[in-house]
Nucleic acid binder design. Structure first.
Length: 243
DNA sequence: AGTCATGTTGACGA
DNA sequence: CTCGTCAACATGAC
């Protein structure tokens, strides 16, 4: 569920609630849920892995973390964290982090950092990456300040496609490789979206959770890498380690 | 049935 | 103050 492309799917599915009035709000979220009642949604947006339900002077931020989920119109067995009820249906969130923030998200979010946004700026991301020369690249591909929406699958796939080892040190990676990694991360995010919609994501992955790389190499190493200690799948024949 | 995870935060101690 | 480590969250896919 939780990487950026999955949020894009949610945004499409829930678009019918845009400009609708919340008739009733329910759930066990530890926020002032009643505040949403009888208010009209101004817009619904995503920023990376954040789902934003925007009202006139405040917005609700939904984050699915690892195991959050949602459903539309049909209520599941799980405990409802936040349920919004409209004349044309219902929107339910489960096991998600719910926050209310004052003001408008445009004042606090930089859309250039969202790897799937039309406003995405590769050069800005590169600048942020270069400012951390001692970091390993796998950590920076999970950094939401740098590439909002990128998660562990996108990290692994982008690095495999760019032929770079996840534990490569930023200062040692040639500039064209860094650009390639970011371009692959963005391009793969849209492929992720396409295949996830068709329910065929896993069979279109190159390296994540695979035992062989697409070149047929048997040399896929599984390792928890970087400060983030997230799982990396590495073809030691295809991916070069810099530094 | 049990394990693991597409994630982040906060507490705690060194 | 900063860093590393760990727990917590509580669903769903396999």
């Amino acid at each position: 569920m939780p990487e950026g492309p999955s949020l894009r799917i949610l945004a499409e599915e829930a678009a019918k609630f845009e400009h609708r009035k919340v008739l009733e709000a329910s759930g066990n979220a530890k926020v002032d849920i009643q505040r949403l009642e009888n208010k009209t949604i101004q817009s619904l947006k995503t920023w990376g892995k954040h789902y934003l339900i925007i009202f006139s002077d405040f917005y609700v931020k939904v984050h699915f973390l690892m195991i959050g989920s949602y459903s539309i119109d049909e209520k599941r067995k799980a405990k409802v964290r936040l349920g919004l009820h409209f004349t044309n249906g219902d929107l339910y969130f489960y096991a998600s982090q719910i926050q209310i923030h004052e003001g408008n998200p445009d004042d606090s979010y930089d859309w250039q950092a969202d790897i799937m946004s039309d406003a995405w700026s590769r050069s800005l991301a590169l600048k942020k990456i270069r400012s951390k020369p001692d970091a390993v690249i796998c950590d920076l591909l999970l950094d939401q300040e740098i590439a909002a929406g990128s998660g562990n699958i996108i990290k692994n796939e982008a690095l495999y496609r760019a032929k770079v080892h996840p534990e490569s040190t930023v200062s040692e990676i040639p500039a064209d490789r860094l650009r390639k990694i970011l371009d692959e991360a963005r391009a793969f995010s849209f492929e992720f979206l396409k295949w996830k919609k068709k329910g065929q994501l896993s069979k279109h992955l190159s390296i994540y959770s695979k035992e062989k790389c697409p070149e047929g190499h048997d040399s896929v190493e599984v390792k928890y890498t970087g400060k983030t200690r997230r799982k990396s799948f590495i073809c030691t024949k295809c991916q070069k380690k810099y530094g």
